[in-house]
Amino acid sequence: MSPEEGLRKSPKCWRDQQRIRREIARLFGKSQAEAALQGKVPYICGGRFMEAYLVSGDVLRIIDKIEASGRYPYSAGIYVGRLRRRKPALIPSVDFLTYLYSVLGRPLRALTVSESGLKPFLYGNDVLKASVIRCHPPIDEDEVVGVLGRDKVVYGVGLSKIASCRELRSLKPTDPVALNVFDVGWYVRGGTTLKERKFKLQG
């Protein structure tokens, strides 16, 4: 295969009518999804993984030109995250959670962790009960949660091991609250190489 043929076999992308909106609404609520999508066009690129984006009108003008040439972008606009066939159906990106929390004015479906808990999390470790200083509902078992520092910055995404914020009270300090799915330490560990896959979930 020539390098040019390789370039042409980019994954196919399309404007999404429902799926991104539905997944955001399922996780964060219908009105919250509408607020996030305001003025943006949902866009999906499929390939080995199915990646979701929100793009503005100007970004779409560039995409239209690319698509008219029979090519597809590598990525575009706001990276919403990865769409999956099994639960969790959407792994949101750190940037999307940052964007969403900014639009809504508060975090949802998130855990705020202490500095001492954030350090091991940024090395790929899980969030333990001892390091959780605040829980932001709704929380569901085996569903995604944003992981924030005390500075309100989103540092990663976890997979909740608890079914509600109330359940935290019954846990021991060393019990896991959320498994590490993605943390921004990945930008150093695997962001430029193939040493570590992006999301620690199969499929």
Binding site: E4, I63, P73, S75, G77, T98
Partner: peptide
């Protein structure tokens, strides 16, 4: 892509091409 995501860039289209 990694740097664009890390820095919160939301108005870029990335394209691998000569």
């Amino acid at each position: 892509r990694s740097n664009v995501e890390r820095m919160g860039v939301r108005n870029a289209v990335l394209l691998r091409i000569d």
